[in-house]
């Protein structure tokens, strides 16, 4: 299953809820303001690092780039472009956007 989160972890608790519910082996894609969660030194970094042990964690590179944060991306997170986003959706039978 693919979970998609688009909120900054410091503004909303969406990422936290997603991580509480997501089962091991799932994939997590961070897009839009959620990409801040994938950057080194942010308050949620430890949570993301921990989650990356049970989940495959991805972040949308164009969103990191747009926000000037691409170089800060954590090594535990795999960067994808929009084509990679499409592949992730195609590759998972169940997809949930955490709005």
């Amino acid at each position: 299953m693919l979970h998609i989160v688009n909120k900054s972890p410091q503004e909303r608790s969406t990422l936290e809820s997603c991580l509480r519910v997501a089962r091991p082996g799932s994939a997590l894609l961070l897009i839009e303001d959620a990409v801040y969660a994938a950057t080194r030194g942010n308050a949620a970094a430890e949570k993301v690092r921990e989650a990356a042990q049970a989940l495959k964690v991805y972040a949308l590179a164009p969103d990191l780039e747009a926000r000037g944060m691409k170089d800060a991306a954590m090594s535990e997170v795999t960067l994808v472009d929009y084509g990679g986003f499409v592949d992730l959706v195609a590759g998972h039978a169940v997809v949930q956007s955490w709005l």
């Binding site: 164009p62 929009y82 592949d87």
Partner: peptide
């Protein structure tokens, strides 16, 4: 929109 464009490209 970007998703749609990328999906069509694939």
């Amino acid at each position: 929109f970007q998703f749609a464009k990328a999906a069509l490209a694939r």
